[in-house]
Design a binder for these strands. Structure first.
Length: 646
RNA sequence: GCUCCCAUAGUUCAAAGGUAGAACGCAGCAAUGGUAAUGCUGAAAUCCAAGUUCGAUUCUUGGUGGGAGCACCA
């Protein structure tokens, strides 16, 4: 057989040689370091014989692609250890994931394992791995597979769902055999530096109607230092957690009397207000009009909108004067009432009605998570009414706006286009197809990549979702652009076209931040609490060296800055200078100014930027001018280069 | 909602079947200072309910709240 290598060279080999043997013929150290191979770009076990002309790429442990194989094999190792400790355990699925691996299982007597079992499982894993078992690939028929796994109902279910013509493969190390597509490591000896991280429940096949299995997450690396580094990173992420920073920086709190109902503290409210001001400014520029709609409306309205039928279990409902009222879980019905309050012409389009709308949703208790998932939040919502021809332009314009705003925060994001659900959807398929094409075209028109998320659209229309990442690597939907083919019908909204005829407009929902709560949660973690000056709750701390001699000048400076809208505080406490400096730094105040004799005599300020040890002397006027420029430019122009926490 | 874990001053952590100790923060007093913690003194806590027990904050059960994940979702 002829094997072609990556560099384009090729060589004849005896049929049936494995990648390992081919590697060995080139260099024994290459063979040793190789983890798996890509044969005609298909992942192949290193020891699997090749019987045909093929291209061959050997993947060594230095290649990031090998880490997935390592983790996948480690999940098998864990399963073998659990089987040894709890014979008869049934296994669900056990893949490698972005960070590490997991395996779902159910012990024979249904006893639940806990974190305290990790030590023993890890020890057993090491014992098995140290036997240096080869991972053997075994091909079997469906019948053989069903016979082998007859005691494992999950595996039987999986086997029965494999396509008829697919070769069924098993992998064995030692006496443990698992149904698996592979590929795997050549040998368990690579599995040395792993750690089990957490345990939880997980529904079989990801469906809450099914029974719950146990899931253990773990992670594996080739080198000990990589594992150690990872554990340090986990620790650092905890330091960045917005719930922790929210408390330390006094931004928000959540009381046990209102789970999921955050309180904004003065510092957090200031930050939020800065964000809202920015939001108003750009939306005004983009031609939006602003409204506020009531947070509570009569049940009849929710019956028209369909929420009463479809969303009731998430709504807070109250009876007033014998009528049922619901607190709004969404702003759209209110926005539509505003639209319907007058007759509209095609000349009004696109009509953009924006609202910082406070909504309440009764989310499941287990879903709550700091500011990321709450039961009351403010959506930076807007409803846009237009004709179908306007969709591509308007959505393209929106994507550009979203991009501009996320760039201000240096946030990276991905776009997902969610299409028509397979079952639960309303409207005609042709309309859906056109709408989906329009959203895709809008992305393309502004040169943005998107991933298609088939079947994940809302029942009333397709949508573009903008996903941001938190410090734990979890992805959260923030921005969203949704076409609505339902509410315009239900509310019978119309406009008058060129010919004086009544027509049905297209309606679009969109949110840029998604919710202020979630977005600010993301920002807290993104900046690690060290906000850019324009957002920081306290932008500037003035610290007099001696409160008896320097207070007057400090107060003068304060009123000069306050007058320009700078958020400034003077620290007049009877504490030592070092103490106040330390606090200004731990609270991550963007700028601190120290006022002493030198400054008072010469009308100067001594400035230090957060994260920097550099001190700069400027005149008051010069400093103010630069500070205002920095704030005005949203941080693009800075006074002094300092460490940025992005 | 489900599985597992957790619950002690405002916060972060100790300790114990016989009512609990520290650090930071807070209050008072002293100290007047040049870039990350001045000293002393003080106030301050066992989430709620039932059970076991001579005695429970500790053990058991239930509730409430929190964390990780699943499911659900901005």
């Amino acid at each position: 057989m002829k094997i072609t290598f990556l560099d384009g060279s090729n060589k004849e080999f005896e049929n049936g040689l494995s990648s390992y043997e081919i590697a060995k013929s080139i260099s024994s150290s290459l063979a040793k370091r190789s983890i798996f191979a890509l044969v005609n770009n298909q992942p192949y076990d290193l020891m699997r014989p090749i019987n045909f002309d093929a291209t061959l790429e050997l993947i060594t442990e230095d290649d990031p692609r090998s880490i997935e194989i390592l983790n996948h094999s480690c999940s098998h190792l864990m399963a073998s250890a659990i089987t040894k400790l709890y014979p008869g355990t049934n296994f669900g699925v056990g893949p490698a994931i972005e960070e590490g691996f997991y395996y779902d299982f159910k012990t024979p007597n249904g006893e639940n394992l806990t974190e305290s079992d990790f030590e023993l499982i890890e020890k057993t894993m090491h014992e098995i791995a140290n036997k240096n078992y080869d991972f053997e690939r075994i091909e079997v028929t469906r019948k053989e597979a069903l016979e082998m796994f007859k005691d494992d109902k999950y595996k039987v279910e999986i086997i029965n769902e494999l396509p008829e013509n697919e070769t069924i493969t098993l992998y064995r190390h030692g006496d443990f055999v698992d149904l698996c597509r592979g590929p795997h490591l050549p040998n368990t000896k690579f599995l040395k530096h792993f750690k089990l991280l957490n345990i939880s429940g997980a529904y079989w096949r990801g469906d809450s109607r099914n029974e719950q299995l146990q899931r253990i997450y773990g992670i594996c690396f080739f080198k000990k230092e990589d594992l150690d580094n990872y554990l340090v990173i986990l620790e650092e992420r905890k330091q960045r957690d917005h719930r922790r920073l929210g408390r330390e920086l006094e931004l928000f709190m959540i009381s046990e009397y209102g789970p999921g109902f955050p309180f904004w503290l003065p510092k957090g409210m200031t930050l939020r207000k800065a964000l809202e001001d920015y939001w108003y400014k750009i939306h005004k520029r983009e031609g939006y009009q602003f409204i506020t709609t009531p947070i509570m409306l009569n049940k009849d309205l929710w019956e028209i909108s369909g929420h009463w039928a479809n969303y009731r279990e998430n709504m807070y409902i109250s009876e007033i004067d014998k009528y049922e009222f619901a607190i709004k879980p969404m702003n759209c019905p209110g926005g539509i009432l505003v639209y319907k309050s007058k007759l509209h012409s095609y000349k009004d389009f696109p009509l953009r009605l924006a609202e910082l709308g406070l909504v309440h949703r009764h989310e499941a208790s287990g879903a709550l998570n700091g500011l990321f998932r709450v039961r009351t939040f403010t959506q930076d919502d807007a409803h846009i009414f237009m004709t179908e021809e306007m969709i591509v332009d308007e959505v393209g314009r929106l994507i550009k706006l979203f991009d501009e705003v996320y760039k201000v925060f240096n946030l990276s994001y991905t776009i997902e286009l969610s299409t028509r659900p397979l079952e639960k959807y309303i409207g005609r398929i042709e309309v859906w197809d056109r709408a989906e094409k329009a959203l895709a075209a809008a992305c393309e028109s502004v040169g943005k990549e998107y991933k298609i998320n088939p079947g994940d659209g809302a029942f009333y229309g397709p949508k573009l979702d903008f996903k941001l990442r938190d410090s734990m690597g979890r992805i959260w939907q923030c921005g969203t652009i949704q076409l609505d083919m339902n509410l315009p019908e239900r509310f019978d909204i119309t406009y008058i076209d060129q010919n004086g005829e009544k027509k049905r407009p297209i309606m679009l929902h969109r949110a840029l931040f998604g919710s202020l709560e979630r977005f600010i949660g993301i920002l807290i973690e993104h900046y690690g609490g060290a906000f850019p000056t324009w957002l920081a709750p306290v932008q500037l701390k003035i610290i007099p060296v001696n409160i008896n001699y320097h207070t007057e000048y400090a107060k003068q400076l304060e009123s000069l800055l306050l007058d320009k809208g700078i958020r400034v505080e003077v620290d007049l406490r009877e504490e030592k200078l070092g103490y106040k400096i330390r606090e200004a730094q731990t609270k991550k105040t963007p700028y601190q100014i120290v006022i002493g004799d030198k400054e008072v005599e010469n009308g100067l300020v001594n400035v230090r930027k957060y994260g920097s040890n550099e001190q700069i002397s400027l005149t008051k006027e010069e400093f103010l001018d630069k500070l205002l420029k920095e704030i005005e430019s949203l941080g693009k122009e800075t006074i002094i280069g300092g460490k940025s926490d992005d």
